[in-house]
């Protein structure tokens, strides 16, 4: 016998008694995320203007294969498909993209904005069956923690880039670009270190933490960032795109990088 008998009254898209502008937030998410994806894809396929002086665009860092003079491994690898435009960013971007795509915060946000699942709280959905994250393909969201492990390596790499951004021909200095790169790693660090999967790893997995002081402290710090995860997510997303744009426009000679000292 079924446990409940609720007459099916849902199933009309947009049906709600809400009077506030409930569609504004999902619309903003839709526009900003789409804008970011379009810009990042365009920038990734450019394959140039990703370095300026000591600055390296985060979309291209680490430069594994690229300019033979600056890349970690070397120039275009022999196995690289000839039909695909070569760009060092194409080796890098799939990892942060996968990290954000499977992030608990973004999942909730884009299910609403792109799939109307639901369009907003207490607003009707288009009639269709629902499987959630139980089966393929969304069950793959559970891979998030593996993207986290890679993202942590990227934070170390971007911190190294930010440090390099303060060295001009062997002299310590500071340009606006140095600050842009530094803010970038701070925002991405705040986002990555507030990851729910990290919170689980460092302490959430245990029922008793009191005995392990260092673990408890780490768990508390991560929890503090997790509480503001949405803010970190948006700030870091916008800033990383701005950082690429900054380096790109300086390299193209459109913007002038102002040296502070």
């Amino acid at each position: 016998m079924p446990d409940i008998d609720v007459p099916l009254v849902g199933g009309r898209f947009g049906r709600t008694s809400r009077r506030d502008l409930w569609w504004v937030q999902p619309l903003v998410v839709l526009l900003v995320l789409s804008g970011f994806v379009i810009y990042a894809t365009w920038a990734a396929f450019q394959g140039n203007h990703y370095r300026f002086g000591p600055y390296l665009s985060p979309f291209y860092s680490p430069e594994l294969w690229g300019n033979p003079l600056t890349a970690w491994i070397g120039g275009r690898p022999g196995w690289y498909p000839s039909w695909l435009i070569f760009s060092p960013a194409l080796f890098i971007l799939p990892f942060p993209a996968g990290f954000r795509l499977t992030c608990y915060y973004y999942r909730g946000a884009y299910y609403k904005a792109f799939w109307a699942d639901p369009p907003s709280c207490a607003v009707g959905e288009p009639p269709r069956s629902y499987r959630g994250e139980r089966s393929f393909p969304l069950i793959l969201q559970n891979v998030h923690r593996y993207f986290l492990y890679i993202a942590l390596l990227f934070i170390a790499d971007l911190a190294y880039d930010a440090w390099n951004g303060f060295w001009f021909d062997g002299h310590f200095g500071m340009g606006v670009g140095s600050v842009v790169l530094l803010v970038n790693v701070i925002l991405l660090g705040g986002y990555t270190l507030g990851c729910h999967a990290l919170r689980h790893r460092v302490g959430g997995v245990l029922d008793r933490l009191a005995g392990a002081r260092l673990r408890k402290r780490t768990y508390d710090c991560v929890s503090c960032l997790t509480g503001q995860h949405m803010t970190w997510a948006w700030c870091s997303l916008l800033w990383v795109a701005f950082t690429d744009l900054y380096v790109r426009l300086c390299s193209m000679g459109v913007w002038h990088d102002w040296r502070i000292f």
């Binding site: 999942r107 299910y111 639901p118 994250e133």
Partner: peptide
């Protein structure tokens, strides 16, 4: 059915 939750956070809001 925990996998049905798609973490859209409406529960937290109310």
């Amino acid at each position: 059915g925990i996998g049905y939750c798609n973490i859209t956070k409406c529960c937290t809001k109310v």
